[in-house]
């Protein structure tokens, strides 16, 4: 049985969670140290499939700025972040762009889109 210390980032409390693997039980992971139920969900997720929102920028032409800020419109697996960056870094757009416009749809088959996080014209 292994135990891992994880800091919950769901809210600013920043609880120190102890997540233990427990193969004999019905629930595979046991979480301690969480002050609320969201911490349990987060702790298990961090063990099974940690995910993050990715924010970055892409090249934009014909615009007052050289870069357009973009984000994933949902969470992507943490270990795919750098692969996502590779895809995003190849993309170039031209103004005008509206906030929420889809720049890359279903990136790396994650079911998540890369969208513009501001308008630019």
């Amino acid at each position: 049985m292994s135990c891992k210390e994880i800091i919950c980032i769901v809210c600013p409390m920043g609880c120190h969670l102890q997540v233990a693997e427990n193969p004999n039980m019905e629930e595979v992971y046991e979480v301690a140290g969480n002050k609320c139920p969201r911490g349990k969900v987060y702790g298990i997720n961090e063990m099974v499939n940690p995910t993050r929102v990715l924010t970055t920028t892409i090249k934009i032409e014909n615009a007052p700025l050289k870069r357009l800020p973009v984000k994933t419109n949902g969470v992507v697996p943490k270990d795919k972040i750098f692969q996502c960056m590779e895809v995003i870094n190849k993309v170039k757009v031209a103004s005008p762009v509206n906030m929420g416009d889809v720049i890359v749809s279903n990136i790396l088959n994650t079911g998540v889109d890369i969208v513009a996080s501001r308008s630019m014209r």
Partner: peptide
């Protein structure tokens, strides 16, 4: 450009822009 804005006012995690 990172997210984490607006949790109190909009109950959403927005980016700065």
């Amino acid at each position: 450009i990172h997210n984490g804005f607006g949790l109190h006012i909009f109950k959403e995690e927005l980016t700065g822009p």
